[in-house]
């Protein structure tokens, strides 16, 4: 009887702690990432590769967050893929996400054998971050940017991508 109660208490605490945190960053592998990129729903997906240790990445994150406030981009799903080490998930990534109150979905890609998967994501990618991919779910149309976006640039590029 006491054992069952303990389990219920612990489960309840965990459940509520989940609600208190902004989001718990999910750890994924390359297979899962490929599934996410290849999903054929009609949404436009903006996938940004970043890391907490990457200064230019942090500088442009607000532009990605701002997309959700723009009615032009109601059909756009933003996914932020962190390339931090999985050992830094709580100390760096979750902490950063909570502190900055990041609303976009954040996932951590746990695979440091980079050469084995970079080409699967994008052949032209040298591996430098930040990097961003736009994906049209229905048509599979993609465009890849290996760069840091200047203010306004992300919106311009995304508007062009959606139109054509």
């Amino acid at each position: 009887m006491t054992m069952k109660l303990s389990v219920i208490v612990i489960a309840t605490i965990l459940h509520f702690s989940n609600l208190i945190l902004a989001q718990n960053v999910r750890v994924i592998d390359v297979v899962t990432l490929e599934k996410i990129l290849n999903e054929s729903n009609s949404d436009t997906r903006v996938v940004n590769f970043w890391a907490t240790w990457c200064k230019p990445c942090i500088e442009e994150l607000p532009y990605f967050e701002a997309l959700r406030d723009n009615p032009l981009f109601n059909e756009v799903e933003v996914i932020l893929i962190s390339l931090d080490f999985v050992s830094d998930l709580d100390s760096r990534v979750n902490r950063f996400v909570e502190k900055q109150n990041i609303q976009s979905t954040v996932m951590l890609l746990d695979d440091t054998d980079y050469n084995s998967w970079i080409n699967k994501i994008e052949q032209s990618w040298s591996g430098a971050i930040p990097a961003t991919m736009f994906i049209q779910g229905e048509t599979g149309k993609r465009i890849f940017f290996e760069k840091q976006f200047e203010p306004g640039e992300l919106e311009n590029e995304l508007t062009n991508f959606i139109k054509h």
Binding site: P56, L83, Y114, S126, G127, A128, I129
Partner: peptide, 9 residues
């Protein structure tokens, strides 16, 4: 030749 994640120059 290999590729790797890293800080941009």
């Amino acid at each position: 030749a290999t590729k790797a994640i890293g800080c941009t120059i």
